[in-house]
Nucleic acid binder design. Structure first.
Lengths: 205, 205
DNA sequence: TCTTCGTTGCACACCGATGTGCAATCTACC
DNA sequence: GGTAGATTGCACATCGGTGTGCAACGAAGA
């Protein structure tokens, strides 16, 4: 009949299923963020669902984690390629990246913790593209003498955005205060002089 | 007879026992540094000893971890109180701290990873004094306008020495190159201008 | 109304790690 | 040589998490 849109196979049936699936993913990001070793049981109850149901959507725990990671990588790469495409100066681009990453940084903090440990290898591979884009941005900044060169772009970018997550974890994640602080701090570490760093961070209200 | 010195109760007996005990602790620091979730079995075999023997020295896994933490805390606090007692400028003191901490930073990296997860609470408490001393040093720097004030001393110190460990983990832990880079990076993040940061880091050969 | 299918609650087997017990073994010390 | 004690090798029980099977329930769809 009125098959409006795409793939309306079953209007309410598959929808509520997708809702629980998404809810499980959302909650899992939260729970694993608190404790990366949380079990399927914890995730299930946090999602208001029975453990058995989680296994109905994700065959195994690694599957769930992988899906989570792929989600994060997709978001991040989209954001980063867009920013990296602009011709803004590297420090301005970095500040914008922090501003846009901030609302989700705390959400995806689990990925940093998960990089070492069981799935470390897999996640590391998934996160590869993000790392590259980040390193590219820093390299661009170093080549244009906006960023310092006391460390190779690869490690500098890693450490710099590790700092962002570290700040995101420390209490003051309320409002934009944390975002500004994170932007300033990472810019300082990248070698941007204090006054300029503050100005760049201020560019993003 | 010749009871030379203190507590020579049994000269070679208890000594070889202490040797294995120390070896277990040393190796455990290593193994847990690679994988904080490593089991007693892994630690034991890495120490060239059977699992049962480890339980002979440490009643339980938490006991082992606690002993490890106490060791680290003792070393760190000793180092920090000494440095903090000097009347050097805050950035010079920080540079010296990094220089002295560097050789063991990679060794104690497990503590950073262990702060979240099972023993998180306990370790956090143990590490309290170290955190305080670090925060004191940064506060001193902020009060004398040597360090920036875009973040409260508490979180700034945490993030700054988190960076040191992060750099220590990233490959280039060979020689003093890494130490210099870590000192410069953390000083930059603390708000010290680049030229001065490089000079301070250079003070420590 | 009857069917479909996601969900539930319970069952179970499996696995790995923890911690303990105990006899056997080897070695430093008497 | 004999003995104490650390170490070993193996046994075992326990615990928690994983993944699966299956009969029920309940609500959307034919």
């Amino acid at each position: 009949m009125c098959n409006d849109g795409v793939v309306p196979t079953e209007s309410s049936r598959v929808r509520s299923m997708n809702e629980t699936r998404d809810r499980i993913l959302d909650v899992a990001l939260d729970v694993l963020g608190e404790n990366p070793d949380a079990g399927m049981g914890e995730i299930a109850s946090a999602a208001g669902v029975v453990r058995r149901t989680v296994y109905g959507h994700f065959p195994s725990r690694p599957d769930l984690v992988r899906t989570l990671t792929e989600r994060a990588v997709a978001e991040m790469t989209a954001m980063l390629t867009e920013i990296n495409a602009s011709d803004a100066e590297a420090d301005a681009a970095w500040a914008e990246f922090i501003a846009r990453v901030w609302p989700v940084a705390h959400r995806y903090r689990v990925l940093l913790a998960l990089r070492r440990g069981e799935y470390g290898e897999a996640i590391h591979n998934l996160l590869g593209p993000v790392d590259e884009l980040l390193a590219d941005l820093v390299k661009r900044g170093q080549d244009s003498d906006v960023f310092a060169q006391h460390l190779p772009a690869g490690v500098l970018s890693q450490v710099a955005y590790g700092v962002v997550f570290a700040i995101a974890e420390s209490d003051l994640s309320n409002g934009t205060r944390g975002a500004r602080a994170a932007a300033i701090t990472s810019l300082l570490m990248l070698g941007v002089p204090e006054t300029r760093a503050i100005a760049r961070a201020g560019d993003q209200p």
